[in-house]
Nucleic acid binder design. Structure first.
Lengths: 208, 208
DNA sequence: AGCTTTCGCTACGGCTCGTAGCGTAACTGT
DNA sequence: ACAGTTACGCTACGAGCCGTAGCGAAAGCT
């Protein structure tokens, strides 16, 4: 049994430096050119790498860009700000700042568009990008439950569904606000959004 | 003063039938090929029109696809289901069904991606697609206010900001759920989402 | 050493783009 | 009816990018 089925044990190893150079060149090209005008030949030239090398590692533009952008989502953190409301506001602002970077916004929307007709690509997006964000939701809920701000969830299946719902609402709202509506997710907006979300999760229905 | 500054009164008029054929061919090509493999030459052939005719009316792929898809968003309606919750559920399900059509999802994400580097395109999307959806929010709130389910809003500026917030939350959540998370916005999900949203908008904060 | 895999480089056919040029069709005003 | 104006279909073109093939050299392992 070998450590990785896809990695041969013999022959010249793949250059890790080339990998890093290609991904960085991809991000730079995204900033300058955007999605549609980005060409793999250009990326190869920027990275100081032959075009054939690029095609040996990635099947096409989609896969390359997903990998190039995925690491940016690792920057998201969940600093403990003392209350659930403050935590949500903090992570939403971080996410909004990430979407303000031109390479992130363009790349994310473009690959999602392509993924509607490409199931493997969708799976790649899910594992490389979506799941890295979703952990923040789970973490935040656990922290709030420990604080006593949220009632403890007994049924794990219900908890998972609720986490998915929160995740889609938060990420979707920020993306739609910044990219579709084209208006900034500034502090004022984030405060109003957080209030609605928090109320929706914790409040008791008004008694008539 | 002439009716339209861009329409000359002399010469051969542009064929309205060609316009319709081109837009329909664009939608058909989107379904079959998706965004990246869609070529304008192919669209022209499908529509039974010369490629040059297509370029005389649209600047490129982006503009063409926006116009081809915009009309689909006119199908959205706000049937009176008797309560605000039911109204929201209804329109969210409609929107989810619209996003399940392959041409809508692919096209919407792709043009949004391009619009991050193209201000005129963003404006075109806003007037052609976004504003057509936003009217539903305004309409629904007015109806709910008349029913007494929502308190009347005195400050029109606050009302506008709230409408924008609701719109981004609703549309964003549905888009993110179906396209990014890749799971269906079925009735169960819609009910849970509506409950959170409605509670967030109407409930009073819990007294400790 | 010998073997294996990757690398850089060059070159290629194929496709799409967007435009130009031409003759013809459709409509308007005199 | 006739001239003027604009849109149309068609063909052709240079340019650019795609993705692959073939080669010799480099870099590792046994």
């Amino acid at each position: 049994m070998q450590s990785r089925a896809t990695t041969p044990r013999t022959g010249r190893p793949r250059s890790a430096a080339a990998d890093a150079a290609i991904l960085q060149a991809t991000r730079a090209a995204l900033v300058e050119l955007g999605w549609s005008k980005l060409t793999l030949g250009d990326v190869a030239t920027r990275a100081g790498v032959a075009k054939t090398t690029l095609y040996r590692r990635w099947a096409g533009k989609n896969e390359l860009v997903v990998d190039a952008v995925a690491v940016l989502f690792d920057e998201l953190e969940l600093p403990d700000r003392g209350s659930l409301a403050a935590d949500i506001e903090g992570v939403v602002l971080q996410f909004a700042a990430l979407l303000n970077r031109p390479e992130t916004a363009t790349a994310l929307m473009a690959v999602v568009a392509e993924s509607t007709r490409d199931e493997p690509l969708r799976e790649r997006i899910r594992t490389s990008i979506v799941d890295r964000q979703k952990r923040l939701v789970v973490e935040g809920r656990a922290r709030a439950t420990a604080r006593g701000e949220l009632p403890p969830e007994s049924d794990p299946e219900v908890a998972a569904r609720t986490a998915d719902l929160i995740f889609d609402v938060v990420a979707g709202a920020v993306v739609h606000r910044t990219l579709v509506s084209g208006e900034p997710a500034d502090e004022e907006w984030v405060r109003a959004f957080t209030q609605v979300l928090l109320l929706g999760l914790t409040a008791t229905p008004p008694t008539p």
